[in-house]
Amino acid sequence: MESYRERLWPAPWIALVAALAIPASLLTFAPVSILAGAVVGVILAGGVIAAAVVSAPLIVVGEGMLRAGTARIPLAVIAGTSVARREEARAARGPQLDARAHLVLRPDIDPVLRIDLADPDDPTPYWVVSTRRPEELAAAIEAGRTS
C-alpha cells in the first residue's frame, strides 16, 4: 500500500515557453509558407509540452520502498531526512552538493528533501528530491521506516 504519491508535473509556464515555438516557426517559414510555419510551430510546441508531461517523475513511498523517478531504495537504509526551502534548497542543489548524490530535481519546484542513506555498501551518500510537499514525504518515509 502506498503512503505517499506525487507526480512532479511541469509548471504551467512551461506551456507558455513552449508556445514561443509558434512565432519562431512563423518567422522562419514566412518566406516559404505561413501555413507551414504555423503547423511546424504547433507541432514543436505540442512536442515540448508532451515531453515535459511524459518525463514528469513520480515519487512513491510504499511497500517498504522509496521510488523517485526510475530509482528505488529500501526504506530500511534511510538514515534521516531534512527539508530545504529557498536559499537552503538552492545550496543543497548547488554549492553544498556531493557529486555522488542521487538527484531527482525539477528546476521549477523550490523545496527539496535531502534523504540521507545509511548503507555502507552504497557509494551514494544521500538523495536530493524535489517535492511540492516535503514535510508529507518526510513523514511518509519516517512512518515506513518505523513500521
Rank of each mutant, 00 (worst) to 15 (best):
M1L: 13
E2C: 04
S3P: 07
E6S: 06
L8G: 06
W9P: 00
A11R: 11
I14C: 05
I14T: 08
L16Q: 03
L16H: 02
A18S: 10
A18R: 02
I22T: 05
P23I: 01
A30M: 15
P31W: 00
P31G: 00
V32C: 00
V32E: 01
A38M: 13
I43N: 02
V48W: 08
A50H: 05
A50S: 06
A51C: 10
V54I: 15
S55N: 13
A56W: 07
A56G: 04
P57N: 07
P57L: 07
I59R: 08
V60E: 09
V60I: 14
E63P: 02
E63S: 15
M65V: 11
L66C: 14
R67G: 00
T70Q: 11
P74L: 14
L75W: 11
S82P: 01
V83P: 00
A84E: 07
R85L: 04
R86Y: 12
E88P: 01
E88D: 14
A89I: 04
G94A: 09
G94L: 04
G94Q: 04
L97M: 01
L97Q: 00
D98F: 00
V104W: 03
L105H: 09
P107M: 14
P107R: 15
D108Q: 12
D108P: 00
I109F: 06
R114Q: 13
D116T: 11
L117M: 11
A118I: 09
D119A: 12
P120L: 13
D121P: 04
D122Y: 07
P123Q: 13
T124V: 15
V128A: 00
V128Y: 01
R132E: 01
R133T: 14
E136G: 06
L137E: 03
A140F: 09
S147I: 05
